[in-house]
Structures are given as C-alpha cells and as structure tokens.
Amino acid sequence: MSKYQDIANDIEKKIIEKKYINKLPEQVVLAQKYHTSRVTIIHALKILQDRKLIHAVKGHGTYISAKPIPKIFLNSGVAQNDGFTKHTHDSKKLVSKVISFNIRKPTDKEKEAFNLSENEDVYDIIRLRILNSEPIKLEYTVMPVNRIPGLNLDILHKSIYSYIENKLGIKIGKDERLITADKPDAYDIKYLNCTSNDPILCVKQKAYFENGTPFELSESRNRYDRGGLTVNKG
C-alpha cells in the first residue's frame, strides 16, 4: 500500500474516532505531521473525497462531510492479502463467530486446486464476522490440514492469517480473486440480517504462501452497505 493510502486510512480513522471534528488541519500541518510532502497529502485527501468523507471549500480549507459515517463501514484494497483482521481499526471491535468447523476429505475440485491426494484432509470452515456488534460478512473457507496444522476453535475466533505468519512462521504471498454481485441466499438472510432484495458482494479467493503453495479457497459474502473494495492501478 502506498504512503498516501496509509495516510488516508489514518485520517479516516481519526474522523471516525472524532479526533477531527468539522474541519481537517491545513495541508501543510498534515504534511508535517506525517513527515511527507504536500503533494502526498493532496493524494490522500483525494481518496477521502472519493469516499465522500470530506469536501474542500475554496479559500477556507477541508471540511468533514455532514453525512454521518457508518462506524461499521470497512474499506480494503483488492490487492491486499493480509487478512480481514488487519483492516479493522483499533476503534472497531471485531468478533468472529464460528458457525461450523469440520475436517473432511477434499472434493475433486479441491484436490486439483491444492494438488492433494485422496487420503489428505481439509478444514471446512464457516465464520460470521461481526464488527461493532453488526454482521459484516460470511466467510466460507477450505484449507489443507497438512499445510496449516493445529487449527482450532480458539484460533478461528481470532485470526487465521496471524496464526499462519506468527505461530507457524509461514509468509503469505499473492492471491487470485473473483469479485461479483449476487443475490442473497438463506444463510445471508439469516446471518447478515439482510432482505431477499439486498445485493451481496461476493469475493472468491485462492490464496498462496510466499513460496507459491496454495493454502486457501474461500468465498466471502459481504453486506453491500458495510464495506467496499478499492482497486488501485499499479
């Protein structure tokens, strides 16, 4: 993530936490605070304008938009693959509710995707992610047992990616994602508290370790009004 994106996310966090009320500091002051150039600050403010969090008044400065900011709205980058937990600010309370956790034999599609034999097992996980007491997304995850040994309910209630990197010492690499719009199914309606007419943002992902070994097939089903994905041109 670029520096101006980091700065934009930090300013957004401060707006949500009410550390900035009504108006942002001058661009020169922000540049000094973040030890960067005014040009970088301008890029960061443009991101916040696109998110409709702020607006500029010529000759008067940059004001925080009057429209209330949902405390449970979360924006993350399409290219970011460091786990959902890392994208929640300290001001937001993330809870992972485990709906189901099983170990089973892989399907033919999963054997091909992970290059597994018939005798190897996979974890089959469904989790509901809850932010500030509001349901955000349903996650359906399949992972080979032999590549992520020791997964248990305690880890699932926290962060799988943190366990992989910090406990197992394995670096997480790239991923492949397919992002589509979908109609809600029965689980979406039940767990995400949405109606049959609400659209669902569906993200299917295949994730790899840094050495190129695939370790995750997942599908996350997101409420349309409580999150977003930012696409940045490289």
Rank of each mutant, 00 (worst) to 15 (best):
K105D: 06
D121F: 15
V98T: 15
I170M: 13
E17K: 02
N115R: 11
L178A: 14
G83K: 03
I11P: 00
H35C: 04
E17T: 10
V57Y: 06
V203I: 15
K18C: 03
K18Q: 14
E176A: 02
G173Y: 05
L116N: 12
E216D: 10
T195G: 15
S2P: 00
Q49A: 09
K18W: 00
N166W: 01
H60E: 15
K174M: 13
K137Q: 12
R51V: 02
V28N: 07
K93D: 12
V231C: 04
E120P: 07
I72D: 03
S37G: 13
E139S: 11
Y191K: 05
T85R: 13
G228K: 05
K71Q: 10
L153V: 10
I69N: 10
I136D: 01
L53V: 03
R226Y: 07
I148F: 06
G77E: 10
N115Y: 06
G83C: 04
C194R: 06
I64D: 05
K174E: 15
G173Q: 02
I16R: 04
L48G: 03
P144G: 00
I179E: 03
K93G: 03
E26V: 01
V122L: 04
R38F: 00
P68C: 01
Y187A: 12
I72N: 04
S218R: 03
Y34C: 02
K67S: 14
D82A: 07
Y20M: 02
L131D: 01
F73I: 08
Q27G: 05
L131K: 09
G77Q: 06
K174W: 11
D175R: 04
D185K: 09
I72K: 03
G227L: 06
K92P: 02
T107E: 12
I172C: 04
K167I: 14
K3A: 01
T62N: 07
K18L: 10
D225L: 06
L24Q: 02
K58P: 00
K58D: 08
E210P: 01
E26K: 11
N81Q: 12
Y187F: 13
L156F: 03
Q5R: 08
I21D: 13
Q49R: 11
L116D: 11
A79H: 09
A44F: 09
S133I: 02
P214W: 04
K105G: 11
Q205E: 15
Y191V: 06
A44P: 01
H35Y: 02
E134K: 11
I72R: 05
C202N: 12
P149D: 13
D175C: 10
G61R: 04
L192A: 14
F209Y: 13
F101S: 08
D175Q: 09
H43F: 04
K105Q: 13
L153W: 09
K206C: 15
P106Q: 14
I16S: 02
T107L: 08
L138R: 09
P106T: 08
A8V: 00
R221T: 08
D198F: 06
K183H: 06
Y187L: 13
D182K: 12
D10I: 00
D225I: 01
V29F: 00
F73K: 09
F209E: 02
D50S: 07
E112F: 14
A186F: 12
K86D: 12
T141S: 15
K13Y: 05
R226W: 05
Q32P: 00
A181G: 11
Q32T: 10
P199G: 11
I130G: 07
Q49C: 04
N152C: 12
